[in-house]
Design a protein around this nucleic acid. Structure first.
Length: 250
DNA sequence: AAATGGACCAACCGCTTTAGC
DNA sequence: TGCTAAAGCGGTTGGTCCATT
């Protein structure tokens, strides 16, 4: 049943790639393309599994890879997109031509996260669930609760918009999920979603345990990149921060 | 000069989704 | 239609380099 195995683990080389292996892989792909990663290593004369070849190509050998340090514009874009998308590195990378998800992920983990933590911005901004230790989540600090609330709000927004994006996908297959998400956010659908903010404000989230809320609750967005950046994302938006007050269902 | 620790990044691991049989 | 492997993706690891002691 099913396909034949992509590679037997025995005899497969692991670890750093040598220049000779790179040359073989580049030469083969330039000549034949990479329609089938499963058979590519054998045909190219490489003792690597297809997965390893694919990663090497997409993260390092591709001709359109942009090497070198990130510009301040790229940096700002990453921060904005991470605030909106979380750790969806592939989606973020799709907005930064020439940059790979792996590169952006490394840059975030080694530079941006530390910098934001040191400036005290990250708790209120783009800290993702995976960045939060379970013990931290149990904290009663309002800022921590806010982070959780913003994250749940963001996820709910994505869930709502994904329904619409799945409809769009059938008519437009050239767009990435992220493109669709951003486009939708700035569309009528997004506007409807933003208008939720105009609902009557019940209570301040920072003073109400999450388990006790029973209706839409406003989130503190004064220092929340997840909320603020949504309106100023580089792809364009005509909303103001006041229009993007965050609510979540109780 | 050697030891140590931190920063950086390429590559691997494992989970999820997609698609072939 | 269900099983399975391929592909895609995010998290993590391990090696290398460099600054500091």
């Amino acid at each position: 049943m099913g396909r034949t195995p992509s590679c037997d683990k025995e005899g497969m080389k692991k670890g750093a790639w040598t220049p000779e292996e790179d040359k073989l892989l580049v030469h083969y792909i330039k000549k034949h393309g990479h329609d089938c990663w499963r058979t590519l290593p054998m045909l190219a004369g490489l003792r690597r599994c297809g997965k390893s070849c694919r990663l090497r190509w997409t993260n390092y050998l591709r001709p359109d890879i942009k090497r070198g340090p990130f510009s301040s514009e790229e940096e700002a874009c990453i921060i904005r997109l991470h605030g909106m998308l979380g750790n969806r590195w592939a989606a973020i990378a799709s907005h930064l031509p020439g940059r790979t998800d792996n590169e952006i992920k490394n840059f975030w983990n080694t530079h941006l996260k530390k910098r934001l933590l040191s400036t005290g911005n990250i708790l209120q901004t783009s800290l993702s669930p995976s960045d939060c230790e379970p013990s931290t989540l149990k904290s009663e600090l309002p800022s921590t609760r806010h982070t959780v609330q913003c994250e749940s709000f963001r996820l709910e927004g994505e869930a709502r918009l994904s329904i619409e994006s799945s409809m769009l996908r059938s008519s437009s297959t050239s767009k990435t999920d992220c493109d669709i998400f951003l486009k939708l956010w700035n569309s009528d659908v997004g506007e409807k979603f933003r208008n939720i903010a105009k609902l009557p404000k019940k209570e301040e989230a920072s003073e109400t345990p999450m388990s006790q809320t029973s209706s839409w609750t406003k989130l503190e967005s004064s220092s929340c990149i997840t909320c603020e950046e949504r309106s100023s994302i580089s792809c364009g938006s005509d909303t103001t921060p006041e229009q993007t007050d965050c609510y979540r269902p109780g």
